[in-house]
Simulated assay, not measured.
Amino acid sequence: MAFEASCCTFTAVLMLVMAIATMAILRSQEARISSKSRLDYIPDKGWLRETVHWDADHSRFLVSHMEGGIGEIPITPKIRPAREHTLVPRNSTPPLAGLSTNGFKVDTPRHRIVAAMADLVKNRYSAVIAYDTRTWEQLFFLKLAGPERASLADDVAVDEQGSIYVTDALGGLIWKVTSDGSSFEVLTAEGAFAVKPKHWLISFVTVNGIVYHPNGFLLVMHTAGDCIFKVSLDGKIVQKVVMEGTFCGDGIALVSPTKLAVSGLWTGAKLVETHDMWSSANITHFYAGPRHRLATSVTVKDGDVFINYMVGQGIPYYLTIGQAAFTPVSS
């Protein structure tokens, strides 16, 4: 009996020590997001957020719900944590039922947002959807792939004419959708993004974050290949950007025509710069964010890069959008 009591006491003490150590690690990781440059908010519905974009016209962050839907987080300095307001609720009726809202872009000239939607569990459905940012009425919904093959519509870009480009993170291709969402085509040839995976844990994730460059081409992050591609708008030229470094990249955002911000899942974020219009590039700055939060996307607000952290924490549960405090990469 004495031996059993001793074992129970030892187990209890060990568990307490482990709990304290875990909390200390989490606190040290969380401290990487400065209290002066973070926006904590209580989610209105759901638990996970995939993408963030700064909507300058309305002074708010917009976020996509992995459970389906779009929310806004207004900038209210006197209210912390902020409260998310759902603009587009999760839809439980087909064909939207069960679809995650993933990457999206604010298409300011056309007063809309365009978002990629997909079946995250079975990968049997991918689509693109658009909403009017003034009324939040659905403008169009277009199915891109069904149960005939595995697919995952992941992120979108919109060019100056309003054409929409959607990455398929499982199929390794880009869909090009007409501006009105009435039809689409596969933009890139089969195998155009064939590269050797560098990260076994995410080796199934191919083309991911995508942006339109004002000089008339696309930049695409290849997650498993740990590289960036430059793609012509007709899909005929797919060029791997010459560079070195590790990303674990997910979402991307243009800071300027020569600078690109990359969210790195559990590695934080990095700044990439080119001097030859994206034939080659170098990682110039990095930011080591909290590893337990998962940095899934980046957006630019007043020249600063802000990161969306997919996973929240705390009681009550809160999520965070944090400014990246970049440090120059030593030569």
Rank of each mutant, 00 (worst) to 15 (best):
L39Q: 01
A130G: 10
L96F: 07
Y287G: 04
I79M: 10
G181Y: 01
K259E: 15
N91V: 12
K78A: 14
Y165S: 00
L62D: 01
G172H: 08
K176S: 10
L16N: 13
V128G: 08
H292W: 13
A145M: 05
S92H: 15
D168V: 04
R32A: 04
L142V: 07
G264P: 00
A56L: 04
H58P: 00
C227Q: 10
L142G: 09
G251T: 02
R291G: 12
F3Q: 11
A194I: 01
A97F: 05
D107W: 08
P74A: 15
A145W: 00
S151F: 08
Q161C: 04
T246L: 05
V329R: 14
F247M: 13
M18Q: 14
G314E: 05
L142Q: 08
I20Q: 06
T167H: 03
D132E: 06
P77A: 02
P43V: 01
S183V: 05
I20P: 02
W266C: 10
P109A: 07
S151P: 06
T296R: 02
G146C: 08
P214W: 09
M243T: 04
D107G: 00
E160G: 11
K78H: 12
R27Q: 11
P94H: 08
V128K: 02
A56H: 07
D57L: 12
V329D: 06
T267D: 11
S279H: 15
S28A: 14
V311A: 13
G289T: 01
P328A: 11
I283V: 15
D304Q: 10
T206N: 09
D155G: 03
G264N: 15
F229I: 04
I315E: 14
D276G: 03
T22Q: 12
S179R: 14
Y287T: 00
M243G: 06
H222D: 15
K45G: 02
A2T: 12
S6Q: 13
N308G: 08
A97V: 06
A169F: 08
V114M: 00
L218Y: 12
A115K: 04
E148A: 07
P109W: 13
S182A: 15
G146E: 04
G172I: 00
K105T: 13
D250L: 03
V63P: 00
V106R: 00
P74M: 12
K45Q: 14
V177K: 08
R293Q: 11
D159C: 09
F141G: 07
V300P: 05
L39A: 01
G268E: 06
Y287W: 14
H275Q: 14
A153G: 05
L218F: 15
N308I: 04
G312S: 07
W278M: 04
M18N: 10
L39F: 04
K36P: 00
N215L: 12
D250Y: 03
S331W: 02
V220L: 08
V166M: 02
K176N: 10
R124K: 10
G71H: 05
R80I: 13
L14W: 07
G98L: 03
A325P: 02
K196P: 01
